[in-house]
Design a protein around this nucleic acid. Structure first.
Lengths: 197, 197
DNA sequence: ACGTCGTTGCACAGCAGTGTGCAACACTGG
DNA sequence: CCAGTGTTGCACACTGCTGTGCAACGACGT
């Protein structure tokens, strides 16, 4: 903190740092308060309120960023012909940010659950559509409706991203295989897909 | 509330009702306070404190019950020869209570996470052991270490129990298939196992 | 030097939840 | 009828977080 020679750099510099740090802090404790976030960001609580009028505002901004990133990755990955190939590409692309945004899964329950759920809705729809496409094309299993199955596969990715082996190249591979398996893709094909991402 | 003619029945009657209702209330909102739980149980906040000195006490008791039930079911199911058969039996047996105790998954984060995590530890170990046994016997896949893989399969069961199709016989079947798939069991065998529970 | 802007420090009001104390009440069994 | 027990209603102190107001400070560009 004291080593930081210059104070303010640009308009959005502090704002961005707060957002970034908020993801980390809330990721470890979804109930963390504004004070905790502020301290972690190296600023005072009052400063956070200067950028985000309320706690909900902060979280909403966070969610909007996550939705934008994931939706972009998802639509780009969904361009692939086969649904299983598209899913594998999605996991590979989304992996770098999955761990950062894992808090949103926990944040869907409690307090702001409603707001977050509605913001996250579009992503859920995209996911369900992709899975539905796979089920229609006999690529994915039909033991569950597309809506639930997509949540299951997506949960698998986030659970692995949340575990200790989040870092390292083995994480992406494991997440791809695990999510494809739950989607009903045979192990051999899942393994093959996890290598050509 | 007014229809309840007699007041107190036995020593544990109110206590048990509080515990039961607390699971429901906390299931919908893990941040629910003692007042909310008390009202839902048809008593006053003060009464809850009469049975449980603190909020942590309530939740700990809840967790201990869950651990006891799940551990019993798990050890009984694990008696089966093959690991995949054991898992299928476990899911079938644990299903009736999985939905009730789903809140514990959410409660592991935030505030009492530490306490709950330690209480839930033994169950995690049992689960990991069973999965490890399956991996050693070439029944389960090895794309993930037993510890993570067991959490994945167990999460799948709870996610399905938490979805709309929690009620109905189709839920157990879906949960069994989905969890077996993620464990690496081929779809055909998983489907067969899900019928003979 | 001057005004601007982001930041700081502090004070404050408000709210919600926790946990406690205590007197009053209702029901039960002897 | 009376003592015991569980419940109630209310009061209270305490804590922690939210959100606001405001004066001061420091860096920056002109």
């Amino acid at each position: 903190m004291a080593t930081e020679s210059s104070r303010a750099r640009s308009l959005n510099e502090t704002r961005d740092r707060i957002l970034g740090v908020a993801l980390d802090v809330l990721g470890e404790n979804p109930d963390a308060g504004m004070g905790e976030i502020a301290t972690a960001a190296g600023v005072v609580r009052r400063t956070v309120y200067g950028h985000f009028p309320s706690r909900l505002d902060l979280i909403r901004t966070l969610t909007e960023r996550a939705v934008a990133e994931m939706a972009a990755v998802l639509t780009e990955a969904a361009a692939a012909e086969a649904a299983d190939v598209a899913w594998a590409r999605f996991v590979a692309r989304v992996w770098p940010v999955a761990h950062r945004y894992r808090v949103l899964v926990a944040l869907r329950r409690g307090e702001f659950g409603e707001a977050i759920h509605s913001l996250l809705g579009p992503v859920d729809v995209l996911l369900a559509d992709l899975v539905q496409r796979g089920q229609d094309g006999e690529v994915f299993a039909r033991h569950l409706p597309a809506g639930v199955l997509s949540q299951l596969a997506y949960n698998a990715v986030f659970t692995i991203a949340d575990s200790e082996l989040a870092g390292g190249a083995s994480g992406v591979r494991a997440a791809t295989i695990a999510s494809l398996l739950v989607l009903g893709v045979p192990e051999a094909r899942a393994t093959a897909l996890s290598d050509r991402s």
